[in-house]
Amino acid sequence: MAFVEPVTLSARGIELVPLALAHEDGLRAAAADGELWNLRVTSVPEPENTRAYIEAALAMREQGQRFAFAVLEQASGTVLGTTSYHDILPAVKRVEIGYTWYAQRCQRTHINTTCKLLLLTHAFEQLSCHVVGWRTDNFNHASQRAIERLGARKDGVIRGHALRRDGTIRDTVMYSLRSGEWPEVRAQLLYLLNRPRRQEARHAD
């Protein structure tokens, strides 16, 4: 049995469902809002590569390495973006959250915080994870701010760690949150979501 089993998570009008080939058109439309594939420090697929992006995510699911979700507007079923558990380590009960991006119109809204609350709640309270991690490009300052706002701790920087889409080599900034820190982080996320007319940092990783 896989550590991360198929599950649908929902709250505040947002639904996370297992990513499938049926989401191809919706995911392509979400990426087109802002032409997100032009962002140097993210992995958003170009329109013609959307199907291959989903197929790669599904292959990683079969290998137990990644579980990708489509982020939907619950009322309409519109695809708003995607996010994943990845680098899944069942033996030590650790997952990372990443491959996250949203249509431009969804940025600076409650959507990212809602998705993180859903993913963290499932990881700590259903999967009994000891640690949840994040990683992001050293030049993706918006992502770093968003991760830090969640209450994660910066573990360090892995230098010369991975290739960017333009062929340059990036440093990777690593963050983590331990299970003992989760109750306070959960309270903070709920506080942020319950504030009126709140704004949040643009996020993609």
Rank of each mutant, 00 (worst) to 15 (best):
A2M: 14
F3V: 08
F3M: 06
V4L: 03
E5Q: 15
P6E: 05
T8D: 11
S10W: 04
A11D: 12
E24A: 15
E24T: 13
L27T: 11
R28W: 00
A31Q: 12
D33I: 04
R40H: 09
V41A: 14
T42N: 14
P47F: 01
T50M: 00
R51D: 06
R51A: 09
A52F: 03
E55A: 14
E55V: 10
A57E: 05
A57H: 15
Q63T: 10
R66S: 13
F67S: 02
A70E: 04
G77H: 05
L80K: 08
G81W: 06
H86P: 05
I88C: 07
L89K: 12
P90D: 02
R94D: 02
R94W: 05
A103C: 05
Q107Y: 04
H110G: 11
N112L: 08
A123G: 09
G133D: 02
G133C: 12
N140M: 12
S143Y: 03
A146T: 00
A152V: 00
K154A: 06
D155F: 01
D155M: 04
V157S: 00
I158C: 02
G160I: 11
A162N: 07
R164A: 01
R178G: 06
R178C: 08
P183E: 12
L190Q: 14
R198D: 12
Q199E: 15
E200M: 07
E200F: 15
D205P: 05
